[in-house]
């Protein structure tokens, strides 16, 4: 099992709010090998980002990791000291956030921030650090990087800010990148370019990638493995081809059906009925029960994970 980089077991991350306990991540298990690209898809609010924050040790009160384990290269990282986290973040695992302004400091110039990010982990000269920064900016497609590195974040368009944030994530060549919907705001040619860079990095350096998105079409082209999240749980996972061609879970099936390009233009899109359950009052039994066309009495009981020989997992009493 030397190829295994990350191993999450029964992770629980809860938010203790005044209205009750929001079980944002409710017992998920997931493993990532070296060089592997894993897609996490799921509805908004299903806990994808919180999963990423948990791996990065970025869950702040009222949130807390309530149970489970996260092993990185075989070592438990839950409960690391703040110092251990600081050397872990950026150098071993880095996260690219949905909102680039979570990475960027609005009052500092880009070069100041990037050079600092390198020198926090490595003793290199400012000049060498700057060279690497410019190189990385060019890699993510920032035009005239040597000049534009002197700008402030607000002087960039939304998409370019995101590319800068991605560049910062790549600076210290981490073993694992957690990318939280970083290309959703980008146009397809730039997205294609960033996906290409990420893919090359994974293939060349053995860097692993967790790609969080709601966009199944990106996962289709990029990932090896996919995990579908619903209300804090992974309800289906497996090889991308198999999951997309023959989804086992009714929710995955609905997701695939609501992708616009597959539907006739101007026609209403397939809509999974109902709304995401509140994470504070998750219905008893299968959490998809209220919206599922196949629900019956058995579904009042929570379905367990069923894992088949080829590594496909599904949590449903009546897989399709």
């Amino acid at each position: 099992m030397s190829n295994e980089l990350l191993d999450i077991k029964k992770l629980e991350t809860f938010f203790y709010t005044r209205a009750g306990i929001a079980k944002a991540v409710n017992g998920i298990s997931l493993s990532v090998d070296k060089g592997e690209i894993v897609g996490i898809v799921g509805e908004s609010g299903s806990g994808k980002s919180v999963t990423g924050f948990s791996i990065m040790g970025l869950v702040d009160p009222p949130g807390e990791i309530a149970g489970g384990s996260i092993k990185f290269k075989g070592e438990e990282i839950i409960g690391q000291t703040e110092e251990e986290w600081r050397s872990f973040r950026g150098a071993k695992v880095s996260m690219i956030f949905q909102d680039p302004m979570m990475t960027l400091n609005p009052v500092l110039r880009i070069d100041t921030q990037m050079i600092e990010a390198i020198r926090a982990h490595e003793k290199v000269s400012k000049k060498e650090a700057r060279r690497r920064c410019v190189e990385t900016l060019a890699m993510v497609g920032i035009p005239s990087p040597a000049e534009r590195i002197k700008s402030y974040p607000h002087q960039f368009s939304g998409g370019m800010r995101q590319r800068v944030a991605i560049a910062i994530g790549l600076l210290n060549k981490p073993d694992l990148i957690i990318a939280d919907e970083p290309t959703t705001a980008l146009d397809v040619t730039i997205q294609g370019q960033i996906l290409s860079e990420m893919q090359t990095l994974c293939r060349k350096t053995g860097m692993a990638l967790i790609w969080i998105t709601h966009d199944l079409t990106v996962i289709a082209g990029l990932a090896h493995k996919v995990a579908v999240m619903y209300a804090g749980k992974i309800i289906e996972s497996g090889n991308v081809q198999e999951v997309l061609d023959e989804p086992l879970h009714p929710y995955t099936h609905g997701l695939i059906g609501s992708v616009p390009s597959r539907n006739k233009r101007g026609q209403p899109l397939y809509q999974i009925p109902g709304m995401t359950p509140s994470l504070i009052n998750i219905p008893e039994g299968c959490s998809f029960r209220m919206r599922c066309p196949h629900a019956d009495e058995i579904c009042m009981k929570e379905p367990d994970e069923t894992i088949s020989d080829n590594g496909r997992m599904v949590r449903c009493h009546h897989p399709l």
């Binding site: 005239s144 397809v188 040619t189 997205q191 893919q199 082209g221 597959r262």
Partner: peptide, 29 residues
């Protein structure tokens, strides 16, 4: 035409993402 080529679709699997040809021009220049 280039844009339409890059549209990700569900049925496009295991794509070899090719980096775009030509430098992306700077809006400054």
């Amino acid at each position: 035409q280039a844009l339409l080529n890059e549209v990700p679709r569900l049925d496009k699997r295991d794509v070899d993402f090719a980096p775009l040809k030509g430098e992306i021009p700077s809006p400054l220049d």
